[in-house]
Design a binder for these strands. Structure first.
Length: 461
DNA sequence: GCATGATCATGC
DNA sequence: GCATGATCATGC
């Protein structure tokens, strides 16, 4: 790979960097207005055809394969604080299940094609013509050594699942940085897999959104002083997986009481923080002294959930997701929905169990949601949208309290919908007026994991 | 006792 | 001021 001519590579990158600050319409031949590309990938197709001047193809080799450089364009979104973040994951090459099982990582289609990327980020704006979207950032990307070890293991895990005839059970939450995301719309474009007769959804290798954000931070020289690495030496990853290394950090404290752990870690401060002390203690076990984030968790989109269990293993509380906006929810497609994004992430569950008057660190596990349960959760999402669209959120008002038609914890195995607001007057706008209240706004709500689901399928599962 | 509506606490 | 993780409290 190092035999490629660096000058040729640099000239391509420099050519690409001339895009920064401009839309395609400005930098390409005027005939670009007749481009004829439509659909989601059209920015990339137009870019290749009219700027780089080669026809979009499905060649398994890199775009500029003479120098081993693959061009990828992807969208940024602007947050409320004006920060630029990845709009979604970066989809790489499609996984060919039949070929994957015979490949080795170093010579795999994935690595041959994506070891060296030329990334072009443009700012997405709803309703704006693709030719007028402004390119914000252009840069090259090669994997740092420690990331590459994790990505290699991700790739191996995806391969081993396909070898076991479980391509249909693949999920983005299976892996750390390199995901196997669905590709091909609603039907999932089912295709055969080598060691099972069950058809599997078409999937592609992809960078998790968090990993892409990390690349953006790197390319823009953005640094954070409140982040720590859990793994600082890639040699640790030779013998063990990332998950194993994390779990081992908890091992010395399993079976100890909350107070004992806090004492051993010199963490007296947490005792005065009633609502967040359990999650702060979890952070402390992983080595975070103050508030902050773990680099690998952020890059992988891993969500840490600290759960208090009764002696019967029932969580004290359900677990909430962020409140959803009604106007956005009803516009979503399931495959791109915010909820699916959460459900497909990997979770680290830390369970503290009640033992008399004490709370004891009982169990720690990585978890991600099985496909069947994701399908089950989808029903709640669909039902919620139906209610909002029909203006039938509220069923009645009893003693001043509103009784809603939202899906409760008895209706669905996985999720329910419940208020998530400062109080009942803390609302988001509705697309249409609610029939019972006559209001065009309603108390903020969110999806919640049923605690029974946590008990039966996450803790015990 | 549990499900569900309502609200608190913290940090940015 | 608001988003988010966490928790309270009422009524069946």
């Amino acid at each position: 790979m190092s035999s490629y001519n660096r000058e040729d590579i640099l000239s391509i990158i420099q050519f690409a960097q001339q895009l920064v600050g401009k839309p395609l319409r400005e930098v390409c031949n005027p005939e670009i207005i007749n481009h004829g590309y439509s659909g989601k990938g059209n920015f990339g197709q137009i870019l290749e055809d009219y700027y780089f001047k080669y026809k979009p193809n499905s060649d398994s080799r890199a775009d500029f394969h003479e120098v081993g450089l693959e061009v990828k364009s992807t969208a940024l979104k602007k947050l409320k604080n004006n920060e630029l973040r990845a709009k979604e994951r970066l989809v790489l090459n499609i996984i060919n299940y039949k070929e994957l099982v015979d490949q080795d990582f170093e010579t795999s289609t994935f690595f041959e094609k994506n070891a060296h990327l030329l990334l072009i980020f443009y700012l997405y704006e709803r309703g704006v013509n693709v030719l007028d979207l402004i390119v914000k950032l252009v840069g090259e990307w090669k994997f740092p050594e420690t990331d590459l070890e994790i990505i290699r293991k991700d790739w191996e895990l995806i391969k081993s699942k396909v070898i076991s005839g479980k391509a249909h059970e693949l999920s983005e939450g299976d892996t750390i940085y390199l995901g196997a995301c669905t590709k091909g719309g609603k039907g999932g474009n089912p295709r055969p897999q080598p060691n099972s007769t069950i058809l599997a959804k078409q999937r592609a290798f992809s960078f998790k959104q968090g990993y892409l954000n990390y690349i953006i931070d790197f390319l823009t020289n953005t640094t954070f002083d409140n982040e720590i690495n859990i793994i600082d030496d890639k040699s640790l990853l030779v013998e063990k997986s990332f998950e194993e290394i994390v779990l081992e950090k908890f091992q010395p404290y399993i079976g100890l009481t909350f107070e004992k752990i806090a004492q051993q870690l010199n963490f007296v401060a947490v005792l005065s923080q009633p609502k967040s002390m359990y999650s702060l203690l979890t952070n402390a076990i992983l080595g975070l002294k103050n508030r902050g984030e773990f680099v690998e968790f952020k890059k992988a989109g891993i969500q840490i959930k600290t759960v208090r269990l009764s002696s019967e293993n029932m969580p004290r509380e359900d677990i909430s997701f962020p409140a959803f906006e009604y106007l956005e929810l009803v516009e979503e497609e399931w495959e791109e929905s915010e909820l699916l994004g959460y459900l497909e992430s990997k979770f680290l569950f830390v369970f503290y169990k009640e033992n008399g008057n004490n709370l004891v660190l009982d169990k720690v596990k990585f978890w991600n949601m099985p496909q069947d349960d994701i399908e089950e959760a989808k029903k709640v999402w669909e039902h919620t949208i139906e209610l909002i669209d029909a203006g039938k959120i509220v069923r009645s008002i009893q003693n001043g309290r509103r009784v809603t038609n939202f899906s409760g914890s008895r209706q669905n195995k996985v999720l329910h919908v419940r208020p998530h607001a400062l109080n009942a007057n803390d609302t988001y706008p509705l697309p249409i007026m609610d029939i019972v209240t006559g209001l065009k706004e309603y108390t903020k709500q969110s999806f919640w994991f049923n605690k029974k689901y946590i008990k039966d399928f996450i803790y015990s599962g």
